[in-house]
């Protein structure tokens, strides 16, 4: 593991100030306690500064009222969390050590505008691509943790997402650890063409080896989990959890509506729909997720849990 270990720079090492504040330097820092609202309301002149308007119920309130869970205080709508916010909610304080922090995409198709788009999103989000992976403890139980971020090209899966998730599985297999993945994704990253499609096979093969080793894999489906991520690692968990009302599906709603020439009901492809059809084990409220995951890890301890 010595070779592997070099690749994983621990949180404390990256926390040193650099010319630009690194993603993980800010992860657990005090100043950053207030979550930033990533989905600003539509430009509406009557919304005061520092307030947000819920896209579902239309209520206007101070950003602070969303709290670290980012749930609408009026209608309980879940705002999407970025990976930084998610890791803070799930991992025990100061326990997260990131893997492969510097991996970034190339441009296999020389697709016009792709490199620029990646660069501008890196600047905007502080991420190198759409997933963060690492190890941590959850309620005291060690686990590998991966979190996707819809703020980066709708968390589409290209080479970096595929490689980081594959390495996370390989690390978990080699170290006999359970793995917990929070998924969200628009699907395969079109700009990387067939290379993106091959990531589905690559990650699934790594998941197979983790599973054969008798280790636990938990997926938590969050809004939205679709396309090639649904059709690969999102649906391969031993236990599949979901946040309420998350959109989960293979084909996009618009594509299905065009194919069948009918409007689909609102609840189609929601987490509740999937649970009813037998594809989600349990829908868990956001505030309860760390405890539910801890409890599942505890039941499996000794089987890819705490040994």
């Amino acid at each position: 593991m010595a070779l592997l270990k070099n690749r994983y720079v621990s949180l404390n090492e990256t926390a040193e100030p650099k010319e630009k504040k690194s993603f993980f330097a800010s992860l657990f820092s005090k100043k950053d306690e207030k979550p930033e609202v990533k989905e600003p309301p539509k430009k509406d002149d009557d919304i005061p500064a520092g307030s947000v308007k819920c896209p579902d119920c239309g209520s206007i309130y101070d950003k602070k009222e969303l709290g670290s869970l980012k749930i609408c205080p009026k209608c309980a709508r879940y705002y999407r969390l970025n990976c930084k916010e998610r890791i803070r909610l799930i991992a025990d304080k100061d326990s997260f050590e990131e893997f492969d922090a510097n991996m970034q995409p190339k441009d296999p198709l020389n697709f016009p505008g792709y490199a620029e788009k990646v660069a501008s999103l890196q600047e905007k989000t502080g991420l190198k691509d759409a997933v963060i992976t690492g190890k941590c403890t959850i309620g005291g139980f060690p686990a590998v943790l991966g979190v996707m971020d819809s703020g980066f090209m709708m968390a589409s899966m290209g080479s970096v997402v595929g490689e980081k998730v594959t390495r996370a599985f390989e690390y978990a297999t080699a170290n006999r650890l359970p793995i917990v993945l929070f998924t969200c994704s628009g699907g395969a990253r079109m700009q990387e063409g067939i290379v993106s499609l091959m990531q589905m096979a690559k990650v699934s093969a790594a998941a197979a080896r983790h599973s054969e080793a008798g280790l636990l894999y938990i997926t938590v489906l969050t809004d939205p989990t679709t396309g090639g991520v649904t059709a690969s690692f999102a649906m391969l968990g031993d236990i599949i959890l979901s946040e309420p009302k998350a959109l989960i599906g293979f084909a996009g709603r618009r594509v299905i509506e065009q194919t069948i020439k009918q409007k689909l009901p609102d609840e189609f492809q929601h987490a509740e729909f999937l649970q009813e059809h037998g594809f989600v084990d349990k829908i868990v409220d956001r505030e309860a997720l760390p405890y539910t995951i801890r409890d599942i890890l505890k039941i499996h301890s000794g089987k890819g849990g705490e040994e």
Partner: peptide
């Protein structure tokens, strides 16, 4: 065979 796919820098 499938592990090799991916183009990235680190």
């Amino acid at each position: 065979r499938f592990r090799k796919f991916g183009e990235f820098t680190e």
